[in-house]
Amino acid sequence: MGERVRDALRAYLLIAGMWIRSTMIYRTSFAVTMAGNLLVTGLDFATILLMFSRVDSLGGWSLPEVAFLYGLSATSFGVADLVLGSMDVLGTRIRDGSFDTLLVRPASVLAQIGADHFALRRLGRITQGAVVLGWALAFAGIDWTPAKVLLVPLMLAAGAAIFCALFVAGAAFQFLAQDAAEVQNAFTYGGTTLLQYPPTVFGKDFVRGVTFLLPLGFVNWVPAAYVLGRPYPLRLPVWTVWAPPLVAAVCCALAGLAWRAGLRAYRSTGS
């Protein structure tokens, strides 16, 4: 098991390296798209700033508090996006037949498709998310304790893992519907957008769904509410604040199963 993971990681890095070299052939284009990525991903925060130019709080949360949510969501999503953000090419690869060429290589197909079109320009989203997060940490008036200090990196890591699981599950879905790559956007891009706003903004049933059904709430909402000392709209036991790594592990396991089922279905149907 450990060896298989190590091999997969190695293959991933080999292929990602090839994509980086490919992008660096066109340096100007890379610089432009990198700047563009920074700008595009920054628009979400610009919208929040615009909202706060007209109001002082949203759902009872102040701007630095919303910025804290935003920074956590954008950074962890940014990491997942950098690592697996191009998995939506799977459908195209299946349609044009190039997916088959991955299956004759002595390397994990998941690693190969995960590294496909690896793009360093995606560092843009991580960068602006991290900047906002840094600002929020300084100005959100957090009453720091060791537990809260520990929670921040934990949230980022678990959040990134949860988003990675969504990307893999989305890719697995493309084995069934090759044209429907956009569905996963609702969960990935939609998910990160959703988590940039306070949970108090949303209807109770909606928050319930996003906490228990599709556990996005554990990316930042639940632990961040604790760090900021704000009540979560749902009654949850205190320990759930530490649940994100567990939730992430379950999500990754389920996504892995979905991927295997999808790949098996592909290999038996060839489409």
């Binding site: 090839m18 490919s22 052939i25 044009d96 190039s98 060429t101 004759v104």
Partner: peptide, 16 residues
């Protein structure tokens, strides 16, 4: 143990 060449589909890296 095997080598595969897909005639109309190159596996070479286009820009490199």
């Amino acid at each position: 143990r095997i080598g595969v060449v897909f005639g109309q589909r190159t596996t070479l890296w286009w820009d490199l």
